[in-house]
């Protein structure tokens, strides 16, 4: 409230990831190789997640690449008496839409197409702003990060749908459903973006405020 916000790192205090204890870190001597440990739970302590931005970027770029086959390749291959049919995620949505389940079509569209794409864009925005040490709207950016963390898992929806269908629709020549190659790419997108978000340290959003303020006074 009064002037410069005081963070734990600015007072050389570590906040433990595992148990939450605030400490200066137990000095266990040279045998620990300069690594600081928590006096309560002995977990390794860092002021910020190590190499957060670089790791987060690497995982995010990999996710961008996998997003392309995930949407272009078939996620479900149906073969029946009347021939075979390959469905991409989008054609699956259209199928639900035209068969009258517009509500589920919307759910699948949001969970499988919108959410992954918005997550990729949101993570890019967060990483770029942190790298540029932006002081723009830290609260809104923190909220954006929380949204990314919260919605991440919901993109798994289509994988589960295909899992159930592929297990049940195996009636010999009548109809057979198989998971297509896009399932692997899509699973990779979900896993990679989740790892990217987990590597990101939201405290980096607030750190530039720390450095800016004293200069103004």
């Amino acid at each position: 409230m009064n002037g410069v916000p005081v963070t734990a790192a600015s007072r050389a205090l570590y906040s433990c990831h595992t148990c939450g204890l605030l400490s200066r870190g137990a000095d266990k001597g040279a045998d620990m190789g300069g690594v600081v440990h928590c006096p309560r739970c002995s977990a390794e302590l860092h002021f910020r997640k190590p190499d957060s931005v670089a790791r987060s970027w690497a995982l995010l770029i990999a996710a961008y690449i996998m997003y392309i086959p995930a949407n272009l390749l078939p996620i479900m291959e149906t073969s029946s008496l009347f021939g075979s049919q390959d469905d991409t995620i989008m054609s699956g949505v259209l199928y639900l839409w035209y068969s009258g389940s517009w509500d589920l079509a919307l759910v699948v569209f949001v969970a499988s197409i919108m959410v992954p794409l918005l997550k990729l864009i949101a993570m890019t925005l967060l990483l770029v702003s942190v790298q540029r040490r932006s002081v723009w709207q830290p609260l809104q950016r923190t909220k954006l990060y929380r949204v990314v963390e919260f919605v991440g898992r919901w993109s798994m929806l289509d994988i589960y749908v295909v899992t159930i269908l592929a297990a049940l629709v195996q009636i010999g020549s009548l109809a057979t459903i198989k998971a297509g190659p896009a399932a692997v790419a899509f699973g990779a997108v979900v896993v990679l973006t989740m790892f990217s978000a987990l590597q990101f340290d939201p405290r980096l959003i607030w750190d530039p405020l720390q450095k800016e303020r004293p200069g103004h006074e």
Binding site: Y160, I164, L168
Partner: peptide, 18 residues
């Protein structure tokens, strides 16, 4: 973060409709 039962539930419901 890797427990996703609630998403699985929704997936089963979509599968039921299909």
């Amino acid at each position: 973060p890797w427990g996703m039962l609630e998403v699985f539930m929704l997936g089963v419901i979509v599968a039921l409709v299909k």
